[in-house]
Structure formats: structure tokens, C-alpha cells
Amino acid sequence: MPADIHHDAPSPRLNATRARQGRWGKHVFWVLIASTVLAALALFGAWTFRAKDLAAVEVNNGAKTTAEAQRYDTPQTPARQTP
């Protein structure tokens, strides 16, 4: 009967905390950078694709009419001062 490789070689013992820790390396850094750049490009692309629809929500697109501006024009009153 052939010897089982997994039982013949002793494996190093690690505690639970050490076994759960990941290794920080350059490959992790580059994956993080690449995924952040791709996410930013996707958001920018989605915003660019829907820019006309988002601008169409505002009826006057930022151009206030004179009547609308006068509606919010209130006269200034002097501050009340108590002696």
C-alpha cells in the first residue's frame, strides 16, 4: 500500500490568529489599484452615459426666469435693537 503524502510529512503548527492573517504584498497592492481605477472608470462612464437624462430632470436647467427670481426677492428690514 503506497504511503499517503499528507500523513508522512509533518506540517508546521500555527495558532489560529497567525493562520487567519493574510500576506501583504505587491500583488495585493496592484489588485487594489486596478479595481479602484476600474470602479472609477465605470462610475464616470455611467455618469457620462446618463448625463443628458440627469440634466433633463431640472425643467429650466439652471436658467431662472425674472418672475421666478422676483418670487424669492424679499425687502431687507433693519435689525431690531433693544436698548
Rank of each mutant, 00 (worst) to 15 (best):
R18V: 08
T74Q: 15
L41V: 11
A42W: 07
P12I: 00
R23W: 15
L43K: 12
Q70K: 15
Y72S: 06
R13E: 05
W47C: 05
G62C: 01
P12K: 00
E58S: 03
G45A: 02
T65N: 05
Q21G: 05
R18F: 02
D4V: 15
V28N: 12
P75Y: 05
Q70M: 15
I33R: 08
F44Q: 15
G62A: 00
D53H: 00
D8P: 08
E68C: 07
N61R: 04
D73G: 01
P83D: 10
D4L: 14
P75W: 06
N61V: 00
A3L: 15
W30K: 06
L38E: 08
V28Q: 08
I33V: 14
I33P: 11
T82K: 06
G22K: 03
P2F: 03
W30G: 01
K26G: 13
D4Y: 11
F29S: 04
W30Y: 09
R50H: 02
R50C: 03
P12C: 00
P78T: 05
A42C: 02
A39N: 06
W24C: 08
Y72R: 13
D73C: 03
S35D: 02
A56Q: 04
G22L: 02
V59C: 03
M1P: 09
A51L: 08
A40G: 06
A3Y: 13
Q76S: 08
A19I: 01
V37Q: 04
L32E: 05
F49W: 15
H27G: 11
P10R: 05
T65H: 04
P78L: 03
G62I: 00
W30C: 03
A56W: 02
L43S: 15
L14D: 01
L41M: 07
A56H: 04
F44D: 12
E68P: 07
A9I: 11
K64P: 09
H6L: 14
V31Y: 10
P12Y: 01
I5Q: 14
P10D: 07
P10C: 04
E68A: 08
F29W: 12
L14A: 07
N60C: 01
K64G: 07
E68V: 06
F44M: 15
R23G: 10
E58A: 00
T17G: 04
E68H: 07
H7V: 11
G22Y: 06
P75I: 02
P75A: 01
F44I: 13
A51F: 12
A51D: 05
A39P: 09
L14R: 01
R71Y: 14
G62T: 00
P83N: 12
A40M: 03
A16S: 10
E68Y: 04
H6V: 13
K26W: 14
L38Q: 09
P2E: 08
L43D: 11
T82R: 09
D73Y: 01
R71A: 07
A46E: 10
S35L: 10
A39S: 07
V31H: 08
A19D: 01
A79F: 09
L38A: 15
A55C: 04
A56L: 01
W47H: 10
